[in-house]
Design a protein around this nucleic acid. Sequence first.
DNA 1: CTACTTTGTGCGACGTCACAACAAACGGGG
DNA 2: CCCCGTTTGTTGTGACGTCGCACAAAGTAG
Lengths: 402, 402
Amino acid sequence: MRSTKLSLVLRQLRDGGPRSRARLATDLGLTRSSASALVGELEELGLVRAAGVERGGLGRPGTAVELDGHRVCGIGAEINVNHVATMALDLAGDVVAEHRAPIDSTRLAVSAVLDLLAELVEQTDADVRAGGGQTVGCVVGVAGLLDRTHEVLTVGPNLGWKDVPVGAELRGRLGAAYPVTIENEANLAAVAEAVPGDASRQDILVIFGEVGMGGGIVAGGRLLRGHQGYAGEFGHMIVEPGGRRCGCGRVGCWETVAALRPLLDAAADPDDPIRDPALALDERLAEINRRADLGDNRTLAALDQVGSWVGIGAAMLTNALNPAAIVLSGYFAEIGHHMRPAIQEQLLAGVLAPQGGGTRVEFSTLGFTAAVRGGATEALESVFDDPTTVAPRPDVLLGGAR
Amino acid sequence: MRSTKLSLVLRQLRDGGPRSRARLATDLGLTRSSASALVGELEELGLVRAAGVERGGLGRPGTAVELDGHRVCGIGAEINVNHVATMALDLAGDVVAEHRAPIDSTRLAVSAVLDLLAELVEQTDADVRAGGGQTVGCVVGVAGLLDRTHEVLTVGPNLGWKDVPVGAELRGRLGAAYPVTIENEANLAAVAEAVPGDASRQDILVIFGEVGMGGGIVAGGRLLRGHQGYAGEFGHMIVEPGGRRCGCGRVGCWETVAALRPLLDAAADPDDPIRDPALALDERLAEINRRADLGDNRTLAALDQVGSWVGIGAAMLTNALNPAAIVLSGYFAEIGHHMRPAIQEQLLAGVLAPQGGGTRVEFSTLGFTAAVRGGATEALESVFDDPTTVAPRPDVLLGGAR
DNA sequence: CTACTTTGTGCGACGTCACAACAAACGGGG
DNA sequence: CCCCGTTTGTTGTGACGTCGCACAAAGTAG
């Protein structure tokens, strides 16, 4: 009962930025006294703090209140083919710590990868504590299919994993005081793109492309997980019946025509350096951008062709979901601007609703940190759900009633 | 604050059925005294009533409390190509009134259709009042694309309507004391399929097929509308690039291969009576069932072929949404059982998640009343959101404090 | 018939919120 | 320079809702 009101105030501060107690009261339909009391309580918990004066013309200026980051942090973690990574985000959304270790998951044993990630998480938690904060939770993004309980990785084709109870394994290694949960990596990336408070980012579709394709759906600001947690597996929607064979064994999957490989296949001969997996990915993508900027016909044609396929798939999803925006992430973020015309064209052509249902095409700016950022955001959600769960400020405990 | 608790109790009774005050308290984490007070208040509002004793073994038997339907009703209405219809549902979900009028929307003027529907709604409201109830709202389902404000029908291809502010028009005709809102017809059908309390029906995908195809998505028990309200337009997802031309002008739309016409095209010659639009639809569908039951090869092949296409589209949506069930409605409900093997096969083949993500294929049993039923359900939602909005029982007003 | 269990209600204590009053802080005008 | 209006933030007071507890009611088991 009390926690719901505190939650309301906290979310309002996150979504709408700092403001005075009086404005908070009018915005939430409370009295100034109630708002003041709630803010006071949040202040005691160390979740908000004063943020300078707010001159608003006439009358006494208010003292703005803002989220106080440094007390609590959420940790996001990621297990991917090439690396494991973590990130700690404070309540205000600022990065407090970040760790990253390259791996070769296909050669490393499962337990070794989990060991390494656990080490990174503990290091991150240590960083948080060193900054005087407490960790409220850790959400781990895994590249693969996670069962609804979010505890067991059913299949991780790219990782080469199968039936790994990632949640339990990690909890065993950490002995952490905070909850550890598991989520699909692309779903977490979607969470990261849905910035709180931005109304145009509460119904979005995130499409991630690289070796494979995945994605996530945010509807009404909340991640859509589906009945067993398998939602967002866009890469294996069959968009071209009778088309190319996919690594998954099916034929005509979206990722056979819109992931990185089909682009490279169309853009370059087998001996072209941009198709050399030994080279760094961003180098190869930069080269594609260079060629496109120079007007190379084959490159442009390839981008156009793949862009069309991206648009066709995006149109199908838009017909079903009518998102406010489609956020393209992964390799699309780097070279997608060259695909934009083709994507837009197919989207407008393939969506029944007038003007494509008003869906905008955007490109992610989060880079490879999207998943860990989304994980940390998701972990922090528990604080916004119930602010009373965080331990009170030590000085308040000592001070007592004065 | 108070209304939220009342809302909780009311929903609990709806979702879990009648039960004693004590069980209500334990289920909701309240004390027995609080539960008793809340039930008392709901009783005064006329929303719940006693429902016999509940023998539970040891101790004093409890007196069960159940939803009391007859006080408040929601009205669902529908504007379709061949008919307009209404239905009043009471709080318990029982049908209180039902009206239906066949029309030919292509020949009738827009205003005439609206006049007729308004008349039906008023008649339905009169029925509700005659039964001693009050109407709490009316939700109108329209076959076409509705803009997010849910006020203007942007395009209704089958109706032949364009840019009609259905909501405002209807309100003007009704001068109703209750709110009137507009929703896509197939979306309302989806609401009707998502039976409250049934956990396996809170994440579902409803696919409606007849002349065209549409549908709706229910995620976490709530209708997914999308940013502008255009969600659920499955019929025009392009499943066969370069395929057949669709009535909408595009090529390869799902409804060109999975709606009623492609089935008839494959199953019968042009002069076959089952392709005669003059015959009643259920007659023609019954004939298809007869032939399939008799083992007619051409019919079975057609059902198999169309079923495969249904499964291909369903698989795409299942990859994206991972619903607990796909509910097939419209003509699928009548003859879909003959398509089930083909649908299941494509669904298992086309969905990445193991065992097709656990998604079941089901057929609607609601017939053509799905949309009106969903509309009435949606209208009643306002009562569950805030039970205090309903007018108190007249006898309570008269009785006063005793 | 007694012991025990469970249900439903009545009553006092406590916490929370709304309303009102008041002090504080600032701009503007004479 | 001072007074006034305006807005902010805090402090009290009363109303209301919820919890905990006790008690009567109504059944079962032995």
